[in-house]
């Protein structure tokens, strides 16, 4: 059920990237897509009523394995957030430079290249 939400979010992002004319809205669409995937990754590792995957000495190992959520997707998500941050920063800075060159954010007016 939650996975459907992720796909809905992904499609919202994709819709923004594909149909919007404004550079900033396209960047927002990209960000939404990244977050949809991050959410999906987190939900893969989630289990209901799960506990944090930190094992202390008082814990029973079998009980721990049964209840703890999967920590690996969380590590993946941290990495993917950092990557998303890098892409976002670069995209915004390119968009600012484009605004200085063309005086607009509208992609209909930014078409010096035919391609």
């Amino acid at each position: 059920m939650e996975f459907i939400l992720c796909f809905f979010l992904l499609m919202v992002g994709l819709y923004a990237v594909v149909t919007k004319r404004n550079l900033v809205k396209i960047i927002i669409g990209l960000a939404i897509m990244e977050y949809a995937i991050n959410l999906f990754l987190i939900l893969i590792g989630y289990r209901k009523d799960g506990i944090a995957p930190i094992m202390t000495s008082t814990m029973d190992r079998v009980e721990f394995l049964r209840k703890a959520v999967d920590p690996l997707p969380q590590a993946l998500v941290i990495t993917s957030i950092v990557i998303g941050f890098g892409i976002l920063a670069l995209a915004v800075s390119i968009a600012i430079r484009i605004y200085e060159r063309f005086g607009t954010f509208d992609i209909n007016e930014i078409k010096k290249l035919k391609g």
Binding site: L14, M33, E34, A91, I94
Partner: peptide
């Protein structure tokens, strides 16, 4: 160059 870079960035990130 900026336009090409932005295009590349959007398609590449998708």
């Amino acid at each position: 160059e900026l336009e090409a870079s932005f295009k590349y960035l959007v398609l590449g990130s998708v």
